[in-house]
């Protein structure tokens, strides 16, 4: 077994183990952490496949931002475990059916019939000076520039929509006037009064 293969099996093992642990974990925060471990393992496998830009993006976007917000939400929620467990039995049959269908579909689509070595040969190794990010950027900004720009505009619209939704009730908001706060002088807040204090004799 070559060094690459050993690494591949190590990362795959951690990927599968972390995914399973994430599903079976009872503590939501631990589940998030196992999911992060799964993301890292997936990123490592992608790096072995010479897709380092995708791998780093996975860590940057999902681990660095999305999962932080997940953990954020979990911290804020007070999850009532008993109410979740009470409905477990009633959801179990439906859940099992859905799980079985998904597993069957994935086996059909991702199985050896489509992605086996007979169908797809192992990709050839690139030379050491092969730059994944340069190749990707050239594709993205020449052949696929219009879809890329459209996706960007779509995201911009989503951002604007989200902000507008939040800012609907104009009258109901309390805002600060930062300029006013910054330009405040000591005189506006505190003013000193000179009082003649009586001496020992009371005069």
């Amino acid at each position: 077994m070559s060094f690459d293969q050993i690494l591949f099996y190590v990362f795959s093992f951690w990927f599968i183990a972390a995914s399973l642990a994430m599903i079976f974990s009872r503590n939501a925060a631990k589940a998030v952490l196992f999911l992060i471990l799964a993301f890292f393992s997936a990123a490592s496998i992608w790096i072995l496949l010479e897709a380092e830009f995708l791998a780093i993006t996975l860590i940057l976007v999902y681990v660095g931002a999305v999962m932080v917000l997940f953990l954020f939400v979990i911290k804020m929620l007070n999850i009532d475990k008993s109410s979740l467990r009470a409905k477990f039995a009633s959801y179990l049959p439906l859940g099992l059916i859905v799980a079985a269908i998904i597993a069957a579909e994935m086996a059909l689509v991702l199985g050896n019939n489509q992605f086996g070595l007979e169908m797809m040969a192992a990709p050839a190794r690139h030379a050491a000076d092969y730059s994944n990010i340069t190749v990707l950027a050239l594709q993205l900004y020449t052949d696929y520039v219009y879809p890329f720009e459209l996706a960007a505009v779509l995201l911009l619209i989503a951002i604007i929509a989200a902000i507008t939704l939040v800012h609907r009730n104009e009258g109901n908001r309390k805002t600060q006037n930062i300029a006013e706060q910054v330009s405040v002088k000591a005189k506006d807040r505190v003013y000193l009064v000179s009082i003649t204090t009586p001496n020992k004799e009371g005069k």
């Binding site: 925060a29 380092e52 830009f53 780093i56 660095g64 931002a65 994944n132 990010i133």
Partner: peptide, 24 residues
Amino acid sequence: LDISLLYVLAIGSVGVYGIILAGW
């Protein structure tokens, strides 16, 4: 690395977990 600046951004963004988990 060919993408060392992205690596810096990615690994730098992981550091926040230490603080969040410590708090939680």
